[in-house]
Simulated assay, not measured.
Amino acid sequence: MPLHKIIYLSNNTKLYLWKITENLDTLSKDMRLKDSSIARLESMKSESHKKGFLSVRKLLEHIDYNDFDLYYDEFGKPNLKPQGCSIKDMHISISHSHDFSAIAISEKNIGIDIEILKDKIVTIAPKFMDITTLENLSSEDKIKKATVIWGIKESIFKIKNEPGISFPNHIFEENFKFEDKKTAALLKFNNKNEKFYIEFDSFDGYMFVCAFENN
């Protein structure tokens, strides 16, 4: 399936979603990959992970980039090579969950996370959040709120990508309402307090969360 949806966010940020309906042969057809990407793809045992990997490259092609424009730093964070006469370097973040892959492209440093909405998130919530924030919510709203909070922490971690960051002990979200589709969060780590702006929304039984460095 071609591009599923483009979501326009703050800071000239675009979120591109690909719904994975193709088989591996269709996804890989006519796709040029670096040798390192071929090796990484061949090392993946899960077909779902392979499809996620390839569909991200399909999204890159849709916006006139390709696998050769994407590189990872020593911490595994994705980056884009400057393109043409572009004045500003563009930042990228990548996520994959079940039937969807996503990339976010922005002039600001960003992190993106997409997650399928499943009741399991409530079961594991005590491992990454203060579960008192789920009190007095319906079962559906507990799933949504816990998923957003997980996404906040995951997307901030993707921006900072520093060993030792603990989701429950170092990343703290402000209280939020679903209808606002935005909030803020604080990373308290290494004797520093760093604030992040957050946008989120649901789509097709999934949730996306995007974090922006507040600088």
Results as ranks from 00 to 15, higher is better:
Glu74Gln: 12
Leu54Gln: 04
Phe200Ala: 01
Phe212Pro: 07
Lys45Gln: 11
Phe212Cys: 06
Asn136Tyr: 05
Asn169Ile: 00
Phe53Ile: 03
Leu9His: 07
Phe203Gly: 12
Asn23Met: 01
Lys14Phe: 07
Asn169Asp: 15
Phe208Glu: 03
Leu80Met: 10
Ser55Arg: 03
Glu154Leu: 10
Ile149Val: 15
Asn11Leu: 08
Ala104Ile: 00
Phe167Met: 11
Gly151Ser: 05
Pro82Phe: 02
Ser48Lys: 12
Glu173Ser: 15
Asp113Tyr: 04
Lys108His: 09
Lys118Val: 09
Lys182Gly: 00
Asn215Ile: 11
Thr21Gln: 11
Leu70Lys: 07
Tyr65Trp: 11
Lys158Ser: 08
Ile124Glu: 10
Glu162Lys: 11
Ser101Cys: 06
Val56Ala: 10
Ser155Gly: 06
Lys77Asp: 00
Glu213Lys: 15
Gly205Phe: 02
Asp113Pro: 04
Tyr8Trp: 00
Lys45Asn: 13
Lys153Pro: 11
Lys77Ser: 10
Phe208Asn: 02
Ala125Tyr: 00
Leu187Thr: 05
Asn79Cys: 09
Gly52Asp: 08
Tyr197Ser: 14
Met90Trp: 01
Thr123His: 12
Ile20Ser: 07
Gly111Gln: 10
Ser55Pro: 06
Pro168Tyr: 10
Glu115Lys: 15
Ile94Gly: 04
Phe68Asn: 11
Thr132Cys: 00
Ala39Glu: 15
Val56Gly: 04
Tyr65Ile: 01
Lys14Ile: 14
Phe157Tyr: 15
Ala146Glu: 04
Ser93Thr: 08
Phe128Cys: 01
Glu199Cys: 06
Asp25Tyr: 10
Asn79Arg: 13
Phe167Cys: 04
Ile20Met: 14
Ser202Trp: 02
Lys50Cys: 03
Leu80Ser: 09
Gln83Arg: 13
Ser202Met: 13
Gly164Cys: 03
Gly52Ile: 11
Phe100Ala: 02
Leu54Pro: 05
Ser10Thr: 03
Leu80Asn: 09
Cys85Met: 03
Ile159Asn: 09
Val209Pro: 00
Glu213Asn: 15
Asp35Ile: 13
Ile114Trp: 08
Ile103His: 05
Phe172Glu: 13
His98Tyr: 14
Asn23Leu: 01
